[in-house]
Amino acid sequence: MENDYSPNIAFIRDITQETSNTNTYTLEPYDKIMKKKFSYTPGQFIMLSIFGIGEAAISISSDPSNNGFINTTIRNVGNVTNAIFRLKKGDLIGIRGPYGIGWPLDKAENRDILIIAGGMGLAPLRGVINHIKNNRDKYGHLEIIYGARTPGDMIFTYEYDDWKKIMDSTIHLTVDAVPYGIKWDYRIGLVTSCFPGMKTHPRNAIAFVCGPEIMMRYVAKCLENIGFNDDQIYISLERRMKCGIGKCGHCQIGQKYVCKDGPVFQYSDIKKFIRPL
């Protein structure tokens, strides 16, 4: 019987430091057939596994045109991620997946795209941005609003210049605070403080939002206020996951499994379950 709980093996091909506690890992499946078969949509996640420690659900941060290499951006916050941080280039890691439902790139075709990310929330959206970059004619205007706590907490900073060069696009960067002595040429404030300068019009737009849940709730509300319908907004949720395949129950939110029905949800489907109680 096929066993979805048994991890496959992947090489760690590269490690890029993003912030003081965040790295991006480039993984390559050990098995050639798996490498070939490993197809995914940005927004999906994988289960990374270290024998003796356990597993953690981590979102994929690359886009599928990456030649079978998988990027995953990890913040060192728990037992598994801490153990991953102790791995070096060339080491092996357990991998299962990809799982879940990613961003609806097909639905987004021919529409203006508004990407709003907070902190680590940019990781599952990086694949979307790079996908649009590589398939520019399929999509309308691209607008990125990215906020982080401080400039030092921003991830993928080395790609912003490339993103700025994407035709017909706008990028807003904002932080909550700038530590003394740090140079910062962009905005200070919440991601929603960028809304007045926003170019995207709700008429033919689709919004992809990812960040802390409290931020997403607020952003979704603000988007509705400026004319977005709740079926034009997509958010990606974080929940505790132990299996990734809709069995362990931990990621339930109302009548949905985040691992199986999400993690990317149309806001209209999930709205009533994430209301503050």
Binding site: G52, G54, E55, K247, G249, H250
Partner: peptide, 13 residues
């Protein structure tokens, strides 16, 4: 049916 998953490693590590 909800369950938790964890690893147990013996003292040999």
């Amino acid at each position: 049916y909800c369950y938790d998953v964890y690893d147990v490693i013996d003292l040999s590590l």
